[in-house]
Amino acid sequence: GVRVRALYDYDGQEQDELSFKAGDELTKLGEEDEQGWCRGRLDSGQLGLYPANYVEAI
């Protein structure tokens, strides 16, 4: 996976979405899909989806 850092807070709206705060680091686990979602893993171990444009590569 690729380490990325959140640029903005994001509150997951669905069960399969991650929630994070600006500045949090997570691991991107795949390329974004056509809707702009990426699969990732928080350092807590939680897996889920997040909007790709909310993070930057570290």
Rank of each mutant, 00 (worst) to 15 (best):
K28T: 13
S44Q: 09
P51M: 10
G48C: 00
E32D: 14
L42D: 06
Y10G: 00
I58Y: 07
R41L: 09
L47V: 13
Q13L: 09
Y50T: 03
R5N: 02
G30Q: 06
S44N: 15
E14N: 08
G45M: 04
L18M: 06
G23L: 04
E17H: 14
I58P: 06
F20E: 01
F20I: 05
P51I: 06
E34W: 11
A52Q: 07
A22E: 11
Y54A: 09
D16T: 14
V4M: 11
K21C: 14
Y8R: 11
R3H: 02
L26I: 08
G45C: 02
E31H: 08
E31M: 09
D24W: 07
E32H: 15
A57R: 11
G48S: 00
L18W: 03
Q13V: 09
N53G: 06
D43K: 11
W37T: 05
G36K: 06
L42Y: 00
R5G: 03
L26W: 14
E31N: 10
D11Y: 09
R39E: 15
A22I: 09
G30K: 07
A22H: 08
F20L: 07
T27V: 11
L7R: 08
W37Q: 07
N53Q: 09
A6Q: 03
S19P: 02
E17T: 13
L29T: 11
Y8G: 03
E56P: 02
G12C: 07
Q35T: 13
E17L: 12
F20V: 02
L18D: 03
S19E: 05
R3C: 03
G12P: 07
R5S: 05
R39W: 08
T27G: 02
L47E: 14
Y8D: 07
E32I: 09
E32C: 15
L18Y: 01
G1D: 03
Q35K: 10
Q15D: 08
L49N: 11
Q46M: 11
L26E: 01
A6V: 02
D16L: 13
R5Y: 11
S44D: 15
R5H: 08
V55Q: 01
N53D: 03
D43N: 10
Y8I: 08
L7Q: 04
K21S: 09
A22W: 02
Y50D: 00
I58L: 12
T27Y: 15
V4R: 02
Y8A: 11
L26M: 12
